[in-house]
């Protein structure tokens, strides 16, 4: 089942390691010469250039570790990720508590370079390493009555400052319709740039659904449940007027806080220009059929 979707980008498009480690330095040097604007502009045009590992690891939303973008990188160090087990329950043939290794055993790991669009109107391009969720679901056996998949993030209050402060209700939960979960684009990722997933990025295993706003791509998963009813989703519970269950990237459906028509790719410096946001984050050809006949203004 792996390789059902092929990158239109190849390995050659991934910035070589020496480059992605150095680019910040190069940018810094350019800024010193007063060329920041030119460099920012040039980068914004190369729309699908992956972000640097440093950018991906230092600009995160992971409210368990604080609400600032730099907080997760600073505070996630104490999270225990080894050993890691995932409870699979609900409408499955083989429920149980799986170790990470046993859940992934025998599956094919792939690299997928995806756009990543946050509901806050910023975006990145991330070279993920991981597995098609469909392969994992096939392994545990989905019962025919199952219509949705629910996910839950670990809660480790002692090492999670955001949990202590009750920033939002925890555990963080998310969900997908089964056809969304089975879609070839949907993956569970365990690494970025060929490196193990950093804790602030959702180690050791997280969901990646590239055509939905980033908060759907739940991090540090400890439970996967197959269910018949639509499962709860954290931001939808916190503020149902602003966050729907589907939360597909859609430039024509505005969020009350942020215009979704345009976005700014992270890494363009102080003079980065905005770019138009694409329908379904650029994956319209692949996923539009999932929502045929649905009013996306109603099911936002």
């Amino acid at each position: 089942m792996a390789y059902r979707w092929k990158n239109d980008l190849t390995q050659a498009d991934v910035t070589p390691k020496s480059m992605f480690l150095n680019r910040r330095q190069l940018m810094g040097g350019a800024a010193g010469l007063g060329l920041a604007a030119a460099a920012g502009g040039a980068r914004a045009q190369g729309a699908l250039e992956p972000n640097t590992l440093e950018e991906i690891r230092t600009y995160n939303n992971f409210y368990e570790f604080g609400t600032g973008k730099e907080d997760p990188a600073r505070n996630a160090g104490g999270m225990v990720i080894d050993p890691w087990s995932i409870t699979v329950d609900g409408l499955v043939d083989n429920p149980g508590e799986y170790s990470l290794a046993s859940l992934l055993d025998g599956l094919t790991e792939e690299e997928r370079i995806y756009r990543f669009r946050c509901v806050e109107a910023w975006s990145m391009v991330v070279p993920w390493n991981g597995f098609e969720l469909a392969d994992i679901l096939a392994k545990v056996g989905v019962k025919p009555e199952a219509k949705y998949v629910a996910f839950e993030t670990t809660v480790q209050p002692d090492v999670m400052i955001g949990v202590q402060r009750r920033v939002i209700p925890f555990p963080y939960v998310e969900g997908l319709r089964l056809d969304e979960a089975m879609h070839p684009l949907t993956m569970l990722a365990t690494g970025i740039y060929g490196e193990p997933m950093a804790k602030q990025n959702g180690a050791p295993i997280r969901l990646v659904v590239p055509w939905k706003y980033g908060f759907k791509s739940i991090k540090s998963i400890v439970r996967i449940s197959l269910m018949e009813e639509e499962p709860p989703a954290s931001w939808n519970i916190i503020n149902p007027r602003e966050y729907g269950f589907y939360s597909n990237v859609n430039p024509t459906v505005d969020h009350p806080r942020w215009s979704q028509a345009s976005e700014r790719k992270i890494g363009g410096g102080l003079f980065a220009t905005r770019q138009d946001t694409l329908m379904f984050n650029g994956y319209e050809a692949e996923v539009a059929s999932l929502y045929e006949g649905m009013d996306l203004n109603e099911f936002y």
């Binding site: 973008k69 910023w122 102080l270």
Partner: peptide, 15 residues
């Protein structure tokens, strides 16, 4: 700080 890339990956919002 923003100009010289010392405000993190998203200097505009930070500034």
């Amino acid at each position: 700080l923003g100009l010289s890339n010392q405000l993190g990956p998203e200097p505009i919002n930070t500034l």
